[in-house]
Design a protein around this nucleic acid. Sequence first.
DNA 1: CGCAGATATAACGAACTTCGGATTATTCAA
DNA 2: TTGAATAATCCGAAGTTCGTTATATCTGCG
Lengths: 143, 143
Amino acid sequence: MTKPTDDQIAALGAALQAFVRRYKLADAGSSEKPLNELDVQTLLYIAQHPDCGPTDIARYLGLAATTISSATDRLAKRGLLERHRIEGDRRAVALRLTKNGAARAASQVSAYNALNLTMLERLAPTERDTFIRMVTKIAYHEG
Amino acid sequence: MTKPTDDQIAALGAALQAFVRRYKLADAGSSEKPLNELDVQTLLYIAQHPDCGPTDIARYLGLAATTISSATDRLAKRGLLERHRIEGDRRAVALRLTKNGAARAASQVSAYNALNLTMLERLAPTERDTFIRMVTKIAYHEG
DNA sequence: CGCAGATATAACGAACTTCGGATTATTCAA
DNA sequence: TTGAATAATCCGAAGTTCGTTATATCTGCG
């Protein structure tokens, strides 16, 4: 197996750094009072796993359960999610997004999609599937 | 100009999400007491711009000057950088890495390089330059 | 020269976030 | 039944960002 050269590694590093930097400075111009990163991740997880509990989220994100408790508190205070008592286990709570929460989650997804769209548009149409295939290969590689 | 399809956007989004998640959970197992993200960025900026001032860093990262003051405080306390009074302008300080700071910066760069290496290794040797060219095109695209 | 205003940085305090430890409520197993 | 395990939350400590203020210094203009 031929190894990547130092030049290749450096070129990739420079491009990724430039990209991350541009992206970070760009999204400063968002509309609503922004949620912090953890709250966004929490919101999106609940959107995809309705009626999950705080412990699920903590395990998924690799954080302390109390941290998730704080995050869900913040989201609940803003009216983005509701806690429901569940039938089978009365210790547990089921987290569900409110209408506003679902809208907020959708808006987040839109923002991600817009970024992905921008990336693909910068490539020639014939390159796009190749790029997606490569990124997929890198992301899902077993190792 | 043909537009990317929704399927393409979704596929790219899913792959990037998977990649970011794997990367985040992976680097939980690092060695030394970790610097926070801002401190790392600050350290690397100073490594590349010796004798710069806090204001330069604040402008570069798009943050309040006092935030950078805190960051340089933390780095100085850990012995990673030194503040020097400058000749021409006695208001300003010139930030310089100590030996330890330079080592720490180098170690950070190594970590980034290792990640980039991993990414490239997951592609076939013949694909690598294509991938780098595409990422570069996306990152540096004028728009 | 002397002084008003701009500039570089640091000090301080408010608001917020993460997380460990303790607490409450409930379930499970012996 | 009782003790251990589990789900979630409360509380307080430590750390972070950032606005305001303070201090020192520079710059330019009369």
